[in-house]
Amino acid sequence: MLVALVLLGCSREASAPAGGGADGYEKLELRYEAGSGAVSFPELAEDLGFLAPIKLSFVGSSISGPHNIQSVVTGDTDFGGAFNGAVIKLFAARAPIKAVIGYYGVDKEAWSGFYVLDDSPIKGPRDLIGKKISVNTLGAHSEFILKEYLLRNGLSRDEVNQVTLVVLPPVNGELALRQKQVDVATLGGILRDKALERGGVHPLFTDYDLFGAFTAGSYVLTKRFIRDNPRTARKFVEAVSKAIDWAQTTPREEVVARFEQIVAKRGRHEDGYALKYWRSTGVAGKGGVIAQSEFQVWIDWLVRDGELKQGQVGLGDIYTNEFNPFWKGGP
């Protein structure tokens, strides 16, 4: 399936007309998917004026990170983002992509937990054998974190496979947990905070417990896009990096107010209520600079899990910081 997506993406990109734009940029419009009621860093970059004269073209709501980056491969969008483990898996399936900037992550303010009811018999990792856990999608952040937790605590591969992952929209996770349709719910951001306000639940563990602060996901471009649109690619990464840095260094209240203004004026008939619960970018590197360890840890994980062969994926092939002005201490 992934190989078919790769071939389709190559054909669509190859048929795109070549041309130049203002200031020598090869493309002046970038297609993308995004979440409802949220503001992505490319959207923030455009609003702050960092991306001009390039504009964004919203083509639809994002279902998940893996779907988001597959849309880049098929040529339906120009950029997309996902958990780094998902980026590695798609790259290993011969997708011609390259990660160019980190855009979300985990820190003491931005983290996700695996929640159980206060009266749940689940007290530790072995209690999860045979249980159901809600995740937003398969093959992404939550699945990797869960499996790492189980393996670190001595479960065998066979025992890990006895834990059932149930794909649910994140907004439905708390209700499914309270109605005991699942035994554990993955909750983060506003969904985590509202669940804790209502009480009766607590985290069994969190991604911050396991890894501390780290950038977890990256935006990707296709290698063809970078080759054919080098100035546009650099401008995109520079603009997004400046937007991330702005959010990293600006008081939280000002960032939230800017997000609310963006959602209000773009007219997508969406609810921006969750923006009030925004706490942090979660991005570890200044301006989204990618650290080698943020990909190496998941390459090693997939090798141990038997999904990759040793040496199958090289760090130099899968990501680059060359377009990021904050790399090597800049600007």
Results as ranks from 00 to 15, higher is better:
Y319V: 12
D207Q: 01
L168A: 06
L191H: 14
N172L: 13
W111V: 00
G85F: 00
L90Y: 06
D76S: 14
I101T: 09
N68K: 10
N172W: 10
H67L: 11
S62W: 02
G75W: 15
V313L: 07
G329F: 12
N229G: 06
V220S: 02
F50V: 03
V184Q: 00
L2P: 03
V255C: 03
V163K: 00
W301G: 00
S71Q: 15
L315A: 04
V313E: 14
H202K: 14
K223S: 06
G49P: 04
S218T: 13
L5I: 08
L210G: 01
P17G: 03
V59E: 15
Q181F: 10
G217R: 09
V167K: 01
S36F: 02
V100F: 10
V171M: 13
N324Q: 07
L275P: 07
F91P: 01
D207T: 00
A52H: 12
L165D: 03
L155F: 07
G154T: 01
A95S: 08
K328M: 12
Y219N: 07
L315H: 06
G139T: 05
A18V: 13
S120T: 02
I190Q: 11
L302N: 01
E197Q: 15
R227L: 11
G65V: 14
V255W: 05
I226D: 13
L48T: 11
G21W: 08
G288K: 03
G20T: 14
G288H: 10
I190Y: 13
L28G: 10
P230L: 09
V163M: 00
G217H: 04
N84D: 05
Y32N: 05
L204R: 14
T215A: 05
A176P: 04
S156Q: 05
D317H: 08
N321G: 05
S134V: 01
G314D: 15
D271I: 05
V100T: 11
S61R: 11
G217Q: 14
E13D: 12
Y273C: 03
G85D: 01
A176C: 12
F323R: 05
C10E: 13
T249N: 08
G154L: 00
